[in-house]
Simulated scan of single mutants.
Amino acid sequence: MKGYYQGFLIRDWQECDRNNAANILHSVLTEYGLPWLPTGADKDVIKVEEFYLATGGEFWVVEKQGKVVGTAAYYPVKRGEKAVEIRKMYLLPEARGQGLGKYLLTELEKTIENKGFREIWIETASVLKEAVKLYESSGYQAASGVETPRCDRIYVKYLPLE
């Protein structure tokens, strides 16, 4: 278990979360007019074991009163030095506007730094205005090299050296 934030339980993904996590992504992407790509950019949410657990990454789910309402994850990438990419940070509408996104991002950053990583990359789409605002206000710098077709922005944050 990762912990609690204002009545939300944040915990490690379990096999029984596969459909709920996929449904959250599908729902939020559709809400913002973005494509759900289960055989492309979103296959990692279907194959969490392969993309996250087997590579040294983590995939978290967020619950409220037993219902999965959000996801957040990261895995190591070959871009940069000792780098990870934060992925699949999505919240259903009922979980937004309460500081949960900021809290999740901060917790991911702490976990990533404690594991010895030095760079955090995030790809997103301009239409996800709340996400863009969160990343920019959290010290992420615009970069180049977007790899995901539906994304048009990429950010990087360099963690301090010990």
Rank of each mutant, 00 (worst) to 15 (best):
Y140Q: 06
E119P: 01
W36K: 08
P38V: 11
E31T: 12
H26P: 00
K82Y: 09
R11M: 10
E109D: 06
S126N: 12
N20W: 04
E130C: 01
G99N: 06
W36L: 05
A22D: 00
L92Y: 06
G99H: 03
H26C: 11
G33W: 06
R87W: 00
L105A: 02
L29D: 03
K82R: 15
N20P: 00
A72R: 02
E123Y: 04
A22H: 03
P35C: 09
E81C: 03
A125E: 12
V77G: 01
I120M: 08
F51H: 15
P35F: 10
E136L: 14
I122R: 02
L29H: 02
E15Q: 11
Y74N: 09
L108V: 00
V62I: 15
V132K: 11
E136T: 14
E85K: 07
F117G: 00
T39R: 11
E58K: 15
G66M: 06
V84K: 05
N114D: 13
Y135M: 07
V132W: 09
Y140T: 03
G99I: 04
E107A: 08
R79G: 01
G97M: 09
S137I: 00
A22Q: 14
I46K: 08
K67V: 13
S138D: 05
K47P: 00
V61I: 15
V45L: 03
F59Y: 15
L25G: 12
Y103Q: 12
D42C: 07
T111V: 12
L29R: 12
P76H: 11
S138C: 10
E50T: 14
A22W: 08
A22Y: 01
I112V: 14
W60L: 14
G139Q: 09
P76S: 04
E94C: 13
G80K: 02
W13K: 11
V68P: 01
G101I: 03
R79S: 02
G70K: 05
G99W: 06
V45S: 11
I120D: 03
I112M: 04
G57W: 10
P35E: 13
E58C: 05
G97D: 06
V68T: 15
R96W: 04
A54M: 12
Y140L: 04
A73R: 07
